[in-house]
Amino acid sequence: MTDAVLAGTWVVDLRRRTSFSRGHLPGTVSMEYGTQFATYVGWLVPWEDELVLLCDDPEDLGSALRDLAAIGMDGPRTHLLDVATPLPATYRRADWAAFRDEVAQAPVAPVVVDVRQRDEHDQEHLPGSLNLPVQDVDLRGADLPPGELWVHCRSGYRAGIAASILHRMGRRVVHVDDAWERVAELAIPTTTGGVAA
């Protein structure tokens, strides 16, 4: 599996995003298996690139292969994770309450990356956040400012994908895995208009 990562292959981990953040193989990308899985793989992984699916559940692997075949992506390699496989790479997950509390204490505002689509960001976003839609993260993530990146979307799914791609690039990330509606509930300030990354 390490050889596939080193060769630049897209190694996509299907496990839950909570499991991925707690431990994964370096260089892998998190795309939690579920109803959105095939849509995001088909959208984000270049069709000419080799794809490897990685999971600890054979049933999810089989379902993922069927879903990808339905959109015309046949033949990805698969790898079933053994329970003894070391998963040394990790990053933080946080909710909006943790974000609010840490920002209040921080001497410098964190770099916030909003990976929703441009119209979602323009409608309402955190002041100073950078809009880098999830489909552009692999291409433009290297252009983000230095420092720890707090990555969010509307529900946490897209942010999980984006955080894993940025982590693969060597960035320190915090995956904000929480619903956008919680921002209003916690009285976190927002604004409108756009700031692209």
Rank of each mutant, 00 (worst) to 15 (best):
V5R: 00
D13T: 09
R15Y: 02
R17H: 09
T18V: 11
T18M: 01
R22V: 00
L25M: 09
P26H: 15
T28S: 07
V29S: 03
M31S: 01
E32D: 08
Y33Q: 00
Q36F: 15
T39F: 11
T39K: 02
Y40H: 14
P46T: 05
P46G: 01
W47M: 06
W47E: 15
E48L: 01
L51F: 12
L54T: 07
D56F: 07
P58A: 05
L65E: 10
A70Y: 03
I71W: 05
D74M: 10
G75M: 07
V83Q: 12
A84Q: 12
T85P: 06
L87S: 03
A89Q: 12
A89C: 07
T90V: 15
W96Y: 12
R100W: 07
D101C: 01
E102C: 08
V103S: 09
Q105S: 12
Q105E: 15
A106P: 00
V111S: 08
V113G: 06
V115C: 10
E120M: 05
D122P: 03
H125E: 05
D136M: 12
V137C: 04
V137Q: 05
P146C: 01
G147V: 08
E148T: 13
E148W: 10
L149N: 03
W150P: 00
V151W: 02
V151N: 06
H152K: 06
H152T: 08
R154K: 02
G156L: 09
Y157M: 07
Y157D: 02
R158D: 11
G160T: 06
G160C: 14
I161S: 02
A162N: 01
I165M: 15
L166D: 07
H167V: 09
M169W: 08
R171Y: 10
V173H: 09
V174S: 06
H175A: 10
H175P: 13
H175G: 12
R182F: 08
A184H: 13
L186C: 12
L186W: 04
L186D: 03
T191P: 01
